[in-house]
Write a protein that binds this DNA or RNA. Structure first.
Lengths: 255, 255
DNA sequence: TTTTAACTCG
DNA sequence: CGAGTTAAAA
């Protein structure tokens, strides 16, 4: 038996919005410690990991580990039907073929119950190794979203160059080139920690899908290291995160 | 000679918006007591009845009964060209081939006159019998509209189950199922009067067209009885109403 | 036909 | 600022 109640449907909405563009279906792993979800994106290029600790919930009970194969597009549709400030209770049996979503207005005069069929998805359980990143950047999430959007206007490819003084985003294309440099501190309070400075390029369209998580967190953490996927992390209150991983483009220097 | 002046064009706009989706043409019957219109919808499934008493008008004169065969789509186009707070005067001769619409700004500096050709429509004058309904529900019209829209995401068919304690709307489809239960009272001040509890199913697309009348009234009245069409009524201020009727689906129990 | 973006209203 | 509706594009 699984039963987990969130005080605000809005949080679930934001999470699903942050996921549904990148994975249309996914397996939510529920255990006594909370919720987890890991999946490659639809095109098997990037990776997303959700973690929601049990403390995130008003009420949490999970007797046995269960995996819920969710159609995130359907879940998003259901969430479109709900008030953001209602509470939502997610429940499922120990061997579930469906998941129940119960929405209750704070005054309880309105209760809405949705039953979603579960999918049988192959689990692609990917061990994500902990990495010592060479560069760690903290900045406002809206600023990162802006930069990614702006870069996309110039090129499909975005170059991130991180040195001790600053982080620079660049894109080169038909229109011309774009360069945005952020220094530490300032009004945006950008923080840059660098062990080794580096320059990497990425496919901008994935960075842009990552920014769907912007409403979840004011600030985003970007971590880079040589020959290791980029990590973009949006904390979820104090109780979890959404992390996105994207491998850098291989420099076609030696063709 | 017919001459009827409404203080606000906005009211006429709302009425036409509530009708035009369901009947593209209709006959407006004008008499000394006011305006009436009854018609089956375009697909001859549901029925709509408009009643506007003469008190609704700032000025009302109707020497003889006249029937105006209106093209509601055209009327809607005309109304798109007008200011909502202008007054509108509807006039026609005793044997009219056209109707005149006169719009005047409150300061009378702007006057616009539109002449619409009338249609010769077969009258389908349907006696609508008064019914003692087993269940009568009063709720916010916006809430009803929301529920109808939400249900449509799940199924073409909506089930309404009304008991003394609560009214429940349900839909079952490919995604899963949806159930919304409203209890009496609360912030929405839902009122439920029940003689006999019942369960009926309806084609959701008609319910959704009914909700085009939502801007007309804050609250909507829904009446049900066994083997009788559902009635959805939107009062128009204190001087009239729009009523929609829709027969329940026949339970295909005995196939 | 379905989904997404832009515009308008509250 | 958010929501809804409409129009355009896939």
């Amino acid at each position: 038996m699984l039963e987990a109640r969130l005080g605000e449907t809005l949080l679930l909405k934001k999470i699903v919005e942050a996921l549904k563009e990148i994975i249309s279906q996914g397996t939510l792993d529920c255990s006594d410690t909370g919720f987890q979800l890991q999946s490659m994106d639809n095109s098997h290029v990037s990776l997303v990991a959700l973690c929601l600790q049990r403390d995130c919930f008003e009420k949490f009970r999970c007797d046995r580990n269960v995996s819920l194969g969710l159609d995130l597009k359907s879940l998003a549709k259901v969430l479109k039907c709900t008030n953001s400030d209602d509470t939502v209770t997610i429940s499922a049996s120990d061997n579930p073929s469906k998941v129940l979503l119960n929405f209750n207005s704070k005054e309880s005069e309105r209760s809405a119950e949705y039953e979603l069929k579960l999918l049988n998805l192959e689990e692609d359980h990917l061990g994500i190794p902990d990495t010592d990143y060479a560069c760690t950047i903290l900045m406002p999430s809206t600023e990162f979203a802006h930069i990614c959007r702006d870069m996309a206007m110039f090129s499909e490819t975005v170059t991130i160059a991180c040195s001790k003084q600053a982080v620079k985003f660049s894109a080169n294309g038909d229109l011309g080139s774009a360069n945005i440099k952020l220094s530490e501190g300032g009004k945006m309070n950008v923080s840059i920690q660098v062990e080794d400075q580096l320059v990497q390029t990425f496919a901008g369209r994935y960075l842009n899908t990552f920014t769907k998580a912007t409403p979840l967190a004011d600030r985003v953490k970007i971590c880079l290291a040589a020959e290791v996927p980029l990590l973009v992390e949006y904390p979820i209150e104090d109780f979890g995160y959404i992390r996105y991983y994207l491998a850098p483009k291989v420099d076609d220097v030696d063709v």
